[in-house]
């Protein structure tokens, strides 16, 4: 040990500033090259994974649907986001998804809502049928609820299945001890706050989108052929 320190102090002249800059610069350069390479390789896979997860979630909350397109509200009607791509960027919070059956017929909307849960923000996706005025299904996208209690909002199949369907008029209502009407949800025992959060999120999101989804839904426009092929390949 002593020997090492001695040699160190003998050779340790103050390195020049240029050397310092070069060391860091080269390290940064190498690092940058590696990262660009890895990013280029993984980015499409990550994007495909995300799209696939979103598609699966939408198809889950709108039963029997097979296609989706991103929609947003503009000038009194819902329009495809893709049509607008030339113009300004649409905020993620202003997007909802139109879900269409295998015959391209409109099945319902999938709407993202979020709000405070027991621990942290809960993000969920729910399917909505403007004709029946009912929620078709609910899927939790993101939550940090207590394992074993609050996480039953997505692990408890009995709770989740209550949302398919549940009526939204006058509003979705949380009850205890069994649902008695078509607009009621039975709370999870021991996780009332989390159950309440889910119901509140849906009610709030519904209020926001209710008027905007009253008009005729936009037609499904099949994406251009090459994209369709890629989609099939991933499924």
């Amino acid at each position: 040990m002593k020997e090492v320190e001695l040699t160190c102090s003998a050779t340790a002249k103050e390195p020049s500033a240029l050397r310092l800059v070069l060391t860091l610069g080269i390290a940064g350069l190498i690092s940058g090259f590696i990262l660009v390479f890895v990013y280029q390789y993984t980015a499409p896979i990550i994007a495909a994974n995300k799209a696939k997860a979103l598609r699966e979630a939408v198809f889950k909350v709108v039963p029997n649907s097979a296609y989706l397109q991103e929609l947003h509200y503009k000038d009194g009607e819902l329009v495809r986001v893709a049509d607008e791509s030339g113009g300004e960027k649409v905020q993620p919070g202003e997007i909802l998804y139109g879900a269409y059956g295998p015959d391209s017929g409109f099945m319902g909307y999938a709407i993202v809502g979020s709000g405070n849960g027991f621990q942290d923000t809960i993000r969920l996706l729910y399917g909505y049928d403007p004709v029946q005025r009912a929620v078709l299904g609910m899927h939790i996208l993101d939550s940090k609820e207590t394992p074993g209690l609050g996480d039953k909002i997505y692990k408890d199949a009995d709770f989740v299945s209550q949302f398919s369907p549940v009526l939204v008029d006058p509003s979705v209502e949380l009850v205890k001890g069994g649902r008695k009407a078509d607009n009621q949800i039975d709370a999870i025992t021991g996780a009332t706050i989390s159950s309440d959060a889910v119901v509140k999120i849906i009610n709030n999101a519904h209020q926001k989108w209710d008027d905007k989804t009253k008009g005729a839904p936009p037609k499904f426009v099949p994406p251009p052929p090459p994209k369709e092929k890629e989609k099939d390949g991933n499924e």
Partner: peptide, 10 residues
Amino acid sequence: TVADYSIEAF
């Protein structure tokens, strides 16, 4: 970062 991207992708 390499590990992060790889886990997210796979």
